[in-house]
């Protein structure tokens, strides 16, 4: 079988699975609705509870889950190859800490601005993620020869710790209710009840995915080693910068949409590699598709398992991801 054919078949299979999940997910929930009624245009919108549950409560939620899951999984793949470390996550380099700090500040300063229907918390968290990305980038590229992945990793880990301290500090100064609200944001949530935030995050994610698509073979070479990649014709500095910036941008947009939902960026790429091998031309699109399906399913569990209560979706992914991560560590050592 030719390589092109293999890529096409495997990616199509993952796409079919993701599409099936995305179609099925909005039809289930804590309330039983009539799809016939939901799609009946003759019933006025204001009277059609089934349609509102489907189109306001569930569909945006499923779409947001799919987008966030795909983005975090794909960004995980890119950063793991860039850092040559299978245990890296989209949050390793400080993006989520920056986003959380932004959200925390928006909550405690009671920012209530909104731009094109996008409210203060997503705006501030996106700004925070850009700030974190800029700081890490500046630190890691201060050396003359492009990005040092070691410095990148160290800067990211340090920034994570520092921002976490700032978050705790702001939280300490905040009122009880505010602190609680910020903590809740950090557990992730996809009940967006609107298409605006999804549309707003989309351009950044689409641009990043275009960059991802161009670098799949380069990621293979990067994961063999920077020096080796350079000798095989990779413009290493450009490639590393593109990988870091696009993955960070995508992560920032995803986190501003759904909060810092953990473990997607590590579980999904690993499961996918176990299934299809290490070639990034398959791993990257397959992870994005599987990530979308995985997060939508986790969110389905989050909204139904303890009904009428909701489990924060970040808690669900962490409950699955924590043990998985440990198993991975044990297996590797």
């Amino acid at each position: 079988m030719s390589i092109r054919r293999r890529i096409a078949i495997v990616v199509s299979a993952f796409a079919a699975f993701a599409i099936a999940v995305m179609i099925w997910a909005p039809t289930v929930g804590t309330t039983s609705i009539s799809l016939a009624r939901a799609f009946d245009r003759s019933i006025p919108w204001h009277d059609n509870v089934d349609a509102q549950i489907f189109f306001v409560a569930r569909l945006p939620r499923v779409l947001a889950g799919g987008l966030v899951g795909a983005t975090l999984a794909a960004a995980g793949v890119v950063l793991q190859a860039l850092l040559r470390n299978p245990l890296a996550t989209p949050f390793t380099l400080g993006v989520s800490a920056g986003a959380s700090l932004g959200a925390m500040l928006a909550v405690t300063m009671r920012l209530e601005l909104s731009v094109l229907g996008i409210t203060s918390i997503p705006l501030a968290s996106f700004a925070g993620s850009l700030l974190a990305t800029a700081i890490v980038y500046a630190l890691a590229s201060s050396q003359r020869r492009g990005l040092s992945t070691n410095v990148l990793l160290l800067a990211g880990v340090t920034l994570n710790a520092f921002f976490s301290a700032l978050i705790l500090f702001v939280q300490y100064l905040a009122d009880f209710a505010e602190a609680l609200r910020a903590i809740r944001w950090m557990m992730g949530g996809l009940d967006v009840a609107s298409y605006f935030p999804i549309v707003a995050a989309l351009p950044f994610i689409v641009i990043s995915f275009a960059a991802f698509a161009m670098m799949t073979r380069t990621l293979n070479l990067l994961s063999v080693g920077a020096e080796a990649a350079a000798s095989r014709g990779v413009e290493i500095v450009k490639a590393q910068r593109l990988a870091f910036v696009s993955a960070s941008l995508a992560t920032g947009a995803a986190v501003s949409l759904g909060g810092p939902i953990g473990f997607i960026g590590i579980i999904v790429p690993h499961l996918v590699r176990l299934m299809v091998g290490a070639d990034h031309r398959i791993v990257l699109p397959a992870s994005a598709l599987f990530g979308a399906a995985f997060l939508v399913l986790c969110d389905l569990a989050a909204r139904t398992l303890m009904s009428p209560l909701e489990i924060p979706v970040g808690v669900v992914t962490a409950l699955i991801g924590g043990p998985f991560f440990l198993w991975l560590l044990v297996k590797r050592s």
Binding site: T30, P308, L309
Partner: peptide, 21 residues
Amino acid sequence: VLNDIEKESAQVSTEMILARK
């Protein structure tokens, strides 16, 4: 409308609000 939830407070999804009317 959240009488049945034996807690002082609860997070409510939009779906629950739509369903509980």
